[in-house]
Design a protein around this nucleic acid. Structure first.
Lengths: 265, 265
DNA sequence: ATGTTACCCGAACGATCGTTCGCCGAATTG
DNA sequence: CAATTCGGCGAACGATCGTTCGGGTAACAT
């Protein structure tokens, strides 16, 4: 049972339809909120019957849960791959920022759902999602911490060698604030390319608004442009991302409910 | 009909109860989302009968609309008052940041509703809310623009005299991102006082993470502490804020619906 | 051509939603 | 003290929600 999953075109189509439903659900939830999204509206939007969804997901709540977990897993593995081999911490921050913004821009609805509907799940599944979110958060926090440590020890700054962990957290949350707020305002027609936004946020984070900054005039973003036009990290890039290094780290936990799921037997 | 509104204790109690309902509604909406909040749950939370709300608001939607408009009006007039007489632009930014964060910390649920439920209203009323929001946004944008202009023209920076308006917008949105994200993570027991958060965000915005900054070691925040312990700007500070300089700038617009509102006749 | 499987959906169920009607006790007035 | 008004709510209505059941239909294997 190693690689026959992609061989049978049956399960392949199944996964494709599942993804299409998830994408449509993300749009609907982003627009109306989780409780405001109706299964009937989703059926109308996808030109499908109402009962069809229950062949792919056991409940409306399961739809939200799958959407959130798979999105966080995709983002984490995507940014981890992009960070590989990048050593300079300031550049690592740029890679993280750009990766996050690209995902935000290409899957705006999904990002909105991740930010807004964190509290719509029951305690158990919410904890699973929070763990994934913290894993993603920690990647950024380590980068910020490294930059701050290097900055403090450099001869330029006021140089107290020890850095306050509460301050590091506040700064990391501030960076995430800049990133996550973008789904509400960013419009490629008015505010430039995602690279422009990434540069603005990265420069603001590293150098501030007015300070004289050694990295203010960073020269070669050209190398970054190379992987900046990578195909695209979808919600769950199907068939390929299964092997990226992650396994299902959450047990079915509550799938034992009375949903029927008459498939994949 | 000039000042007799506060004389009659009848309408006074009415306004007090109205505010109490709004506060409870903010908590409920913040927790479950607008569509997830039920009037029955609100009745249970406030130990009131279900039909009582319709003596104060014509509908559930009217509750959200009143909450959002009055909150934005309160924030705008509050920060305007705090900014009066402050000339230095960097200090003005600090005042804005601290004011916003204090409101955020003291009325966390309201802030969450302002950020999340912007799209739950029909087009007409949503536009009214957006106008108020833009007014508040522009206050911050002007400050950011001034700081950036001064920084560009100063001898230190790379000094191109013209500043890109798209860049100003991106920067202002980034500042708002840092501010508005706080409702999701800020906990006074772990992350310091609102003043600490305000200092972190203000310094990050002005000076960045590592840059040598002339304002990095700002000396006297002592004066700011004076009005930082002002009583408190509530949602709608009742009876007083009516005269701050604003009038109802939105016509009733749609209150002509079939709600009964058997009051204040 | 025939039997089998997998997929999809129309129709219905019970629960719960926002809203309204009309009565009741308390407070105010003369 | 009697008359009157007003704020409050129990109970009910129609609509709509998430979910389920069972049959119909196209695609596959033999």
């Amino acid at each position: 049972m190693s690689a026959d999953s992609a061989a049978h075109p049956r399960q392949l189509r199944h996964q494709a339809q599942r993804l299409e439903i998830l994408k449509a659900a993300a749009d609907a939830i982003a627009e109306h909120g989780f409780h405001g999204m109706t299964m009937r509206g989703l059926a109308r939007a996808t030109a499908r019957g109402l009962a069809t969804f229950y062949d792919y997901f056991s409940s409306k709540e399961d739809l939200l849960f799958s959407l959130q977990t798979e999105a966080f897993e995709t983002m984490t593995s995507s940014v981890s791959a992009a960070l590989e081999g990048v050593d300079d911490q300031a550049e690592r921050l740029y890679v993280f920022v750009l990766n996050h913004l690209r995902y935000s821009a290409e899957h705006r609805s999904v990002m909105r759902v991740l930010v807004h509907e964190a509290s719509a799940l029951p305690a158990g599944r919410r904890k699973t999602v929070r763990l994934l979110k913290e894993g993603y958060f920690n990647i950024c926090r380590d980068i910020v911490s490294s930059i701050l440590a290097a900055g403090c020890n450099s001869p330029g700054a006021g140089g107290v060698g020890k850095l306050d962990s509460a301050e590091v957290e506040r700064l990391t949350y501030s960076v995430f604030g800049m990133l996550n707020w973008t789904y509400g305002w960013y419009d490629p027609r008015h505010h430039g390319s995602p690279q422009d936004v990434a540069r603005t946020i990265h420069t603001l984070a590293v150098c501030g608004l007015v300070a004289r900054c050694p990295q203010r005039f960073a020269e070669d973003r050209s190398q970054r442009h190379a992987d900046a036009i990578m195909p695209l990290p979808l919600l769950g890039n199907p068939g390929r991302s299964e092997a990226v290094s992650r396994k299902r780290l959450a047990p079915p936990e509550k799938n034992i409910s009375r949903g029927n799921l008459r498939k994949t037997s």
